[in-house]
Design a protein around this nucleic acid. Structure first.
Length: 761
DNA sequence: TGGAATGATGTTTTT
DNA sequence: CATCATTCCA
């Protein structure tokens, strides 16, 4: 087989492994996706039916990537028969088929986070609890964690440990809220994200014949990013794989970055217990990145205590050192990156899609958007507020949802008075009360005022009836009209389109266009009829099946070359020639929320590791000394992660950090020219050789060059984080002076003087 | 009842 | 700063 020759011996052994459990521990860039795809191709070439292969990933983006790669090897037709996708999308598909067994309607709704939180808020209110103590987001987190550990409401309330935690936190009613939430979701015919895994487990647990069917169906199971599985996911895999035992998991503990949603590295370790005879493959050679990048990343991850020992290495060229840039503000950071992209693209004949900007939080994208737009560099943002989460889109989708599932209270509440129909707060309050009293969906209360008497006056009831009639007319056409025709009709006859059209503000126009775009999407979906079955129509319910699980990654985009922008989380599994890792500041990255425990900090460090290892040719780091946060200008300190990179792999712009280095290498000089020029264009960057530091540094660092030079061995210093300490050793050359400082509170630390902002006592 | 005005509140990260 | 929720007035 031709394609197998593209693999090294270890990769090839893994790809050719057919029967029996196997684990691939794969370092960053070691070709694990390649092994997975080739293994699937190999299976199919060995007469395995594509329908019996289940291949799971974590993000939509990864799933899409995988699909494309496999299609390339084995062709679209075969590839489309493989059960492939994210855990959530694959199991929602199975739940659609089987859900009536667990008393869910076939057209069950999927609640997104917003829906879930709003429902939880309502429940908290109905319990007369203080929503400052019972924050919906926090409660949702508790419920989510419980579901991911397969703890239902009953077990939750009986679990002394959990209940104890809740009491400690001053939220003893959390269990009751969970119970009410689960009841309400059930009543609404809705599942939230976590239910898709939780209910799948229930289904497999309570219906042996279902379990049996899928156990035999999926003869081969492959799981990518296994280090990111949580308990619910782990158990599904275990159950489904129990008969054939052909479970192949691929992972890298160093890239485990989803601890916050219950991912457990332990699942890798448990693999031995579940499958004692498994075969293990270790991929350690990195094919992606330069030596500098691989070694720099290794030097960072070495700081973590908890890890499986392995050595990632590469045969690739040394490559350029990692570049570090300091900016005055977040906007300057945007300009630096955009200018730098412009320059590198010209100098190295790169394409825009060779570049990625990676950040810790979605909210950081703005300054880059603005800067890129200004110099006409095309870009694409992944994640963040996705298309499907925009208000106007969710509004229209809520109409679709309600038409398909009338018990969907969250959808009903969202649109019952939008556009305005004279159904106001008073009416809604009364409706809510009656609905709670009779434990019936709002729709039923409206439909049967005699069975569910409420205090709604006749006038209001009339308006409710009109609304209901309107929706019912859509329901009647669900199966007869195609998705586009019905969608269009809904958008028009509900007045939604008119409402948006009348808004001539720029935002309003954009909203109108978004609706048009959704309708275009519907059109495409409707026209895409199955060749084998030309009479079939693609209906709105078909379209809705997992629209809640879609993200922008699923939207087919023009293949124009664009700079990619995304969070580091979203970048996992991807690679780019040039990677900018931005916002490297304490409290942002590592994030403030992660500073309290070592586990969290180590996860942040793994995240940084993931970020660096996305780069093939060059990694460029950036931080700003001031940044707007919550609309407030705040001072920032450089991230500790910068210091954690072995200094031999990193270059720092001399102009911005004080004295010229004694002998700038050619390499160094080139980097300077490349990066300082654009910087000066956009900002009042200090002139080389002038009075470099004082002006720049005074805004944030109290320390200037003189002070750094005053620090010698024996100097008593104070550090913002570690407190007072004594300098034991100074090494390296200006401006890369490194000090070893002993802190009574934190022990010995190695600090780069230019970052550490040590104060001489 | 509807819309504007005001006020609270929040940001990790994804499905 | 943005979004959301609540409040206040026509």
């Amino acid at each position: 087989m031709e394609y197998l020759n593209e693999l090294n011996s270890e990769q090839r052994k893994a790809a050719e492994h057919i029967n029996g459990p196997m684990m691939v521990i794969a370092g960053a860039g070691s070709g694990k996706t390649r092994v997975l795809t080739y293994r699937i191709a190999h299976l199919i070439n060995n007469d395995v039916d594509p329908f019996s292969i289940l291949s799971l990933t974590f993000t939509n983006k990864a799933a899409k990537e995988m699909k494309e790669r496999i299609s390339k090897i084995i062709g679209d037709k075969e590839a489309s028969n493989i059960w492939m996708g994210t855990f959530h999308s694959v199991f929602s598909r199975i739940l659609r088929i089987e859900c009536e067994k667990i008393n869910y309607p076939r057209n069950f709704t999927i609640y997104d986070t917003q829906d879930s939180r709003s429902l939880i808020r309502e429940i908290i209110k109905s319990f007369n609890l203080d929503d400052k103590v019972y924050k919906p987001a926090t409660i949702y987190g508790r419920i989510s964690a419980a579901k991911n550990n397969l703890i239902g409401p009953e077990s939750y309330k009986q679990n002394m440990e959990i209940m104890g935690e809740d009491s400690q936190a001053g939220r003893p009613m959390t269990g009751e809220i969970y119970q009410a939430y689960a009841d309400r979701c059930y009543r609404a015919g809705a599942m939230d994200f976590d239910d898709l895994l939780y209910k799948t487990n229930i289904l497999l647990r309570d219906y042996p014949e279902v379990l049996h069917r899928y156990q035999h169906k999926f003869k081969f199971i492959l799981v990518d990013e296994y280090q990111d599985t949580n308990f619910a996911q782990y158990l599904i895999i275990k159950q489904l794989g129990a008969v054939h035992q052909n479970v192949c998991v691929v992972g890298d503990d160093a890239q485990s970055i989803y601890g916050f949603r219950g991912a457990d590295i332990g699942n890798i370790l448990n693999f031995k217990q579940d499958y004692p005879d498994f075969d293990m493959f270790k991929l350690e050679q990195n094919y992606r990145s330069t030596k500098v990048i691989v070694n720099a990343a290794n030097s960072v991850i070495a700081k973590n205590k908890n890890q499986i020992q392995k050595t990632v290495w590469t045969d690739n060229v040394d490559g350029e050192k990692i570049y570090l840039n300091k900016s005055m503000s977040d906007n300057d950071e945007g300009r630096f990156v955009s200018n730098s992209i412009f320059e590198i693209k010209n100098e190295e004949q790169a394409k825009h899609n060779d570049f990625a900007i990676l950040y810790r939080t979605n909210s950081q994208s703005r300054s880059f958007e603005e800067a890129l737009r200004k110099i006409n560099i095309p870009y694409k943002i992944y994640g963040g507020l996705s298309f499907y989460q925009r208000k106007e889109i969710k509004d229209l989708l809520a109409y679709f949802r309600l038409a398909a599932n009338q018990n969907d209270d969250e959808a009903l509440k969202r649109i019952i008075n939008y556009p305005a129909r004279g159904i106001g707060k008073t009416t809604m309050d009364k409706l809510t009360i009656a609905s709670a009293k009779f434990k019936a969906p709002m729709w039923a209360v409206i439909e049967n005022p005699f069975e569910y008497p409420s205090e709604i006056p006749n006038a209001a009831q009339g308006k409710l009836n009109d609304f209901q009639t309107n929706i019912k007319s859509f329901t009647a056409q669900l199966d007869t009209k195609n998705a586009f025709e019905l969608g269009q009709e809904i958008a028009q006859s509900t007045g939604l389109l008119r409402e948006l059209y009348s808004d001539k503000t720029p935002e309003g126009v954009a909203r109108y266009e978004n609706i048009q775009e959704l309708l275009n999407g519907l059109k495409e979906f409707s026209d895409d009829v199955d060749d084998d079955n030309p009479d079939a129509i693609n209906t709105l319910p078909d379209f809705m099946v997992d629209v809640a699980l879609l993200t922008d990654a699923d939207k087919d985009d023009d293949d124009i070359e664009k700079v990619s922008m995304m969070t580091i989380h979203a970048s996992k599994g991807l690679e780019f020639d040039y990677v900018y890792i931005v916002g490297l500041e304490e409290n942002l990255f590592p994030n403030q929320m992660a500073l309290s425990s070592r586990e969290d900090l180590e996860e942040e460090r793994r995240l940084f590791y993931v970020a660096i290892t996305r780069a093939k040719k060059r990694a460029l780091l950036s931080y700003a000394i001031t940044r707007y946060r919550w609309g407030q200008l705040s001072q920032c300190e450089p991230s500790r992660f910068i210091e954690e990179i072995d200094p031999q792999f990193i270059n720092i712009a001399p102009v911005q950090f004080g004295r010229q280095p004694a002998r700038p290498s050619g390499d160094f000089q080139a980097a300077r020219n490349r990066f300082n020029k654009p910087q000066q264009a956009g900002t009042p960057a200090p002139k080389a050789g002038g009075k470099p530091l004082s002006k720049v540094a005074s805004t944030s660092a109290p320390l200037d060059t003189e002070a750094i030079l005053n620090i010698t061995e024996g100097t008593e210093v104070e550090h913002a984080r570690f407190g007072k300490g004594k300098v034991i050793k100074i090494e390296g050359q200006t401006p890369n002076l490194k000090a070893t400082v002993f802190f009574p509170t934190a022990g010995p630390k190695q600090l780069l003087l230019k970052f550490a902002k040590l104060k001489v006592i």
